[in-house]
Amino acid sequence: MLKIVVCVKAVPDPEKADQIRIDPVSKALVRADVPLVLNPLDKNAMEAAVQLKEQFGAHVSVLSMGPPPAANVVKECLALGADQGILLSDRAFAGADAYATAYTLARGVEKIGSYDLILCGRASSDGSTEWVGPELATLLDTPIVTMVEEIIEYGDEWWKVKSGLDNGYRVVRVKLPAVLTVTRELNTPRTLSFSGIIKARRKQISQWGIDDLDIPEQAVGLKGSPTIVSEMTTQESTREVEMISGTREEMAERLIQKLADAGFLASS
């Protein structure tokens, strides 16, 4: 049976994330009360795992590093069909950059045990670096294919996948165990079902901290992060807007006149 680990991130709800702003005066973050949700592309990763489970049979573990409220996101994945949910949560994990995140997740994967496949989203909606999948793969010494749009062939040892390029794609053969980061083209994530939610109630979420992973404090969180934020600033625009008013037709005509005057439109 395939053993799959899906890495999921709890992110500030993208619909409301613009409420978290840098204060122009204090230059500190204004923390609005934005709820944490499942990172959009991680839904595609979960969907891929559940489809594989339905097709071939699989044991699906969900792994997330985040603050205690991220447990709700893990619970959601259990309701979507995951068998096991693990939240890596510890004060010491806070402030992790992509490297420290990948490092902590790698230790989590090792504690879960053996795996055939690790699925990640291509990017998170907040940090959006796209580094966690490839860094995790490197730290586990596992091959990786990023931007997977389609799984073309499932062999016993080698899989064939399609991965996106700018204006095109590549077809790649990869040897399992492997890490794949997925795009939204891969599938259409299912929505939560009532029976899934009921079943998930019986599933336990394990919470692992730094002692469970047996790693030193200097290796995780802010201390384990090679990068730090040195400064935050706000920017002022240098443009002065002229609002164009009138009826809809008048506004269109006035805009056309402005564009024509600036040399962007020519009449025949």
Partner: peptide, 9 residues
């Protein structure tokens, strides 16, 4: 966050 963040290593 609506501004510029400077990251250093």
């Amino acid at each position: 966050y609506g501004g510029l963040i400077s990251i250093i290593c």
